[in-house]
Amino acid sequence: MKELICIVCPKGCHLKVDEENNYAVTGNACPRGAEYGAAELQHPVRVLTSTVKLNGAARRCPVKTNGSIPKGLLFEAMRVLDDVELTAPVTVGQVVVPDLLGTGVDVVATKSFA
């Protein structure tokens, strides 16, 4: 039995995950907590948010992965973003890096620039 704090939402439920019983989760207030608890002990994943260069602007363009990627890939993913440059116009949701590191997850812009 392993105790975890759920990070799916700000509520922060205290989960108990039974590794010997098919990763059954208790203490969760919603189904997403059960999903998180079971996944966290088997293959932890995170959404990555960062910024990329925006040519011709005095600010960065914020981006995110549009799904979770394996926790172990976070730093490698950050290195991929180092070389990304965008130029306006940028639309929120626009794919910036498709299929990040073969995960099937895209990096997308989280703000529009006219």
Partner: peptide, 10 residues
């Protein structure tokens, strides 16, 4: 749904 700050404001 879970949004980033710029998306929420946007």
């Amino acid at each position: 749904e879970e949004l980033t700050g710029p998306e929420y404001a946007g």
